[in-house]
Design a protein around this nucleic acid. Structure first.
Lengths: 338, 338
DNA sequence: GGCGCCGCTGGAAGCGTTTTCACTTGCCGC
DNA sequence: GCGGCAAGTGAAAACGCTTCCAGCGGCGCC
C-alpha cells in the first residue's frame, strides 16, 4: 500500500502540487473548476495529507497541549471533555500532559527535556498556577496559553466564580441558622488565585458579612479526596465545640465527611449539615446539597479562546468568569435545638 | 530568539549534522569523545530537536493515539492515567481521541477525514469494540492496536476478568442466602466480548451454578450512570416479586440504586442488598460492597504492550487478564426473613 | 488599441530532521 | 609490510508538505 502523496494527486488532477495544496485547504486563488477536480481526485485516491510534513512546512502544528494535574477526577475529566469537543470540531489535535510531579512540571513549562513548544501551537493548563519563573519561561516560547480554573496574571483565564460559589454555599448554611460552621478545604495552595484560597475567601467573607465568627480549629485539609474529607471530618467532629454544619470544597470530600458523621452516629442533616462543591453526577444519590459548576463549559470556553488567539485575533487578555449555582438537596437543614 | 537547529549544533561542535543526530540519539558509531562534545554543545545552546521534522524524516511519530468513549468517567480516567504514565516515561506523546459519536468513530477507525494513521505509531482503544468492517480498515493501515477492556479477536487485548468479577459478586449474594437477585446492566452492547455481556454472563453463570433461577424481568439497563441506575432500580422495585438483592455493573449505578431504595423507604442492606463494580475512590463513603478493578494498571499494561510492539518485538497476539477482587462493605447482608 | 491589473497557476525553495552510502582512518593478522 | 576490516565520519538525498514569487492570460479602462 504505497503512500499517496500530494504529488500523486497533482499528477492525476493535471495540476501542480501548489494548486492541490491550495485547493484542498480552501485557500483563495483557485478556480472553482480546478478545485472541484482536485477535491474529487483526492477523494478517489483516498488522499490524506501527512500532518507532520504540513507541520514542518508551515511551522504550525494544529495541536494544543492540555496540561492537567490528574485526569481521573470528575472535574478534570469534564474540562478535558469540553476542550476536546471544540478542538476536534475545529480540526485541532489534543495532546495530553499529565503534570503530576515537579519533573514533568518543569519539563512542560520550561521546555527542559523535550518540552511543549515545538509540539503544540498553544497550551491549556487546567487547575495549575505557574510560579513566576515558570511564567517567565512560558512567555519565552511565544505560545499562547490559557489557564482554566485559576486566575493567572497576564494570561487568559477562564474559571468559575469560586469565591461567590463558596459564599453562596455558606450563606445557605447561615440562612438555615447555623453559626458554627466547619470548613474542609482542598490543599494548602500557595497561590491566592487558585480555587482553594478563593473558595476559602468566599466562605470567610460570607461569615464575616453575617457577623459570624470563624473558629480556625474547625478548618481541616481534605486534599480533594473522599478519604481526605472523611479524615478531616473525623478531626472536626472531635472538636470540643463541634460545628453544626460543614462546607467542603468538593463533593468527594463532602461524601467522605458524610460518612464520618454516619460512623460517629450523627445524622445528616439532623445533627450536622454538609454542603459540597461541584455537583458531580452522582451527588444526588446521597442527597448532597452542593454548588454546581459547569466544568465542560469551562473547557469549551478555554478551547474557543485558544483557537481565537491562534487564528490571529489579537485581543487584550481575557478573563472569563462562569457563574455557579447552589443546588439544594437534603444534606442541609436548620441546626438541631440544643 | 532564533530557532537553534541541528545544523547550528553541528557547526559549533565542528562535526556534521549526521554525527550530531547520531550522538544525541545514542546511536552507535560515534566515538565517546565526539559524543560528549556534541552533547555538551547541544546543552549549551539549549537545543531541542523539532519533533515534526524528526517524524517526517523517520516516518515514526513517537505518538500513541488513545481512543476513549468518554473521559469524565472514573474508570476511563484511571486507564488513561496509567497509559500516560508509562508513555511519558518512555518519551512517547499521547493524543487523545474522544470517540463519542459515529462520525468520530468512523474517522478514527477508517482514516476517513484525517484519521489516525499518520498521526500516531499505534492506537490504544479503551472500552470500544470495533465492528468487523472497522477491524478490516484498522488492519489496513499497518498500525499496531491494543484494546483495553474488551477482548477483540486478532488484536492485543488487556482487560479484567469481567465474567469472574461479576460471578464473585453474585456468589457473594448467593452465599448470603439471596435467591431473588436483580441485575442492573450497562448498555445493550452487541459485542459479546465487551464488559457488559461478560459481566452478565458471569452473573448468570453464578446463578446457574447455584441452581438459582433468574427472572428476566429483574434485569434493567442503567447506562452506567448514577441516574440510570436510579431509574433502573425504581423499575425493579416496582416488580411484583421484588428481588432482595441487586448486582449493578458499576458503582455509579449501584449508588443510584441505593438512592432509589432509600426513597422507596427500603433499607440497604436490611431490605435490599446492593453490590457494585469498580470500587471507585468514594465507594466507601456509602459503604458499597463492590468488585475492585485496577484500571490504572490496565492502562499501564496496555501501554507497555504497545511499546514492546513498536520497538520491534513481534510476538503472538497477547491477551492479558487482570484479576478482580470483591470488597465487602455494608451494602450487603442476608435477606430479611419474610 | 494599448496598458495595467487581477485571477489563477506552476516552479522551486525551504522546513529540520533521519538515513544511506561512500569514504577515511587506524589496526590487526599473516 | 600489506590486504582487509571495522569504527568513525560526512555529504547528500529523502521525507511530504507550504509558500513565495514569477509568469501568463484575459479583461476593463482610458
Amino acid at each position: 500500500m504505497p503512500r499517496v502523496t500530494i504529488e500523486k494527486v497533482a499528477e492525476r488532477a493535471g495540476v501542480s502540487v501548489a494548486t492541490v495544496s491550495r485547493a484542498l485547504r480552501g485557500l483563495p486563488n483557485v478556480s472553482p473548476k480546478t478545485r472541484e477536480r482536485v477535491v474529487s481526485v483526492a477523494a478517489m485516491l483516498n488522499y490524506r495529507p501527512d500532518p507532520n510534513a504540513a507541520r514542518l512546512a508551515a511551522g504550525r502544528t494544529r495541536t494544543i497541549a492540555v496540561g492537567v494535574v490528574a485526569i481521573p477526577i470528575w472535574y478534570t475529566g469534564q474540562v478535558v471533555s469540553g476542550i476536546e469537543a471544540v478542538l476536534t470540531s475545529q480540526g485541532y489535535d489534543l495532546t495530553l500532559l499529565l503534570i503530576a510531579d515537579e519533573f514533568v512540571r518543569s519539563r512542560a513549562f520550561g521546555d527542559v527535556g523535550g518540552g511543549v513548544s515545538k509540539r503544540a501551537d498553544g497550551a491549556i493548563i487546567v487547575d495549575l498556577v505557574p510560579t513566576t519563573p515558570e511564567r517567565t519561561l512560558l512567555e519565552g516560547h511565544q505560545l499562547p496559553w490559557v489557564m482554566v480554573g485559576a486566575d493567572c496574571p497576564t494570561i487568559d483565564s477562564v474559571m468559575i466564580d469560586n469565591a461567590e460559589g463558596a459564599a453562596s454555599a455558606t450563606r445557605h448554611l447561615l440562612d438555615l441558622g447555623h453559626t458554627k460552621i466547619g470548613l474542609i478545604s482542598g490543599g494548602p495552595s500557595a497561590f491566592p488565585a487558585s480555587s482553594p484560597p478563593q473558595r476559602r475567601m468566599g466562605f470567610l467573607r460570607a461569615l464575616q458579612e453575617a457577623g459570624v465568627r470563624f473558629d480556625p480549629k474547625a478548618e481541616r485539609v481534605g486534599d480533594f479526596s473522599a478519604l481526605g474529607g472523611y479524615e478531616a471530618m473525623q478531626a472536626i467532629l472531635a472538636l470540643d465545640d463541634r460545628p453544626t454544619a460543614v462546607f467542603a470544597m468538593s463533593d468527594e470530600m463532602a461524601m467522605g465527611a458524610m460518612r464520618a458523621c454516619e460512623e460517629a452516629g450523627l445524622d445528616v442533616p439532623g445533627d450536622v449539615s454538609v454542603v459540597g462543591f461541584d455537583d458531580v453526577d452522582w451527588a444526588f444519590t446521597v442527597g448532597l446539597t452542593t454548588v454546581r459548576q459547569d466544568a465542560t463549559e469551562l473547557g469549551a470556553i478555554a478551547a474557543r479562546l485558544m483557537i481565537r488567539r491562534l487564528e490571529g485575533e489579537s485581543c487584550d487578555r481575557q478573563v472569563v468568569m462562569v457563574p455557579t449555582r447552589l443546588v439544594e438537596r437534603d444534606s442541609t437543614a436548620p441546626p438541631a435545638q440544643s
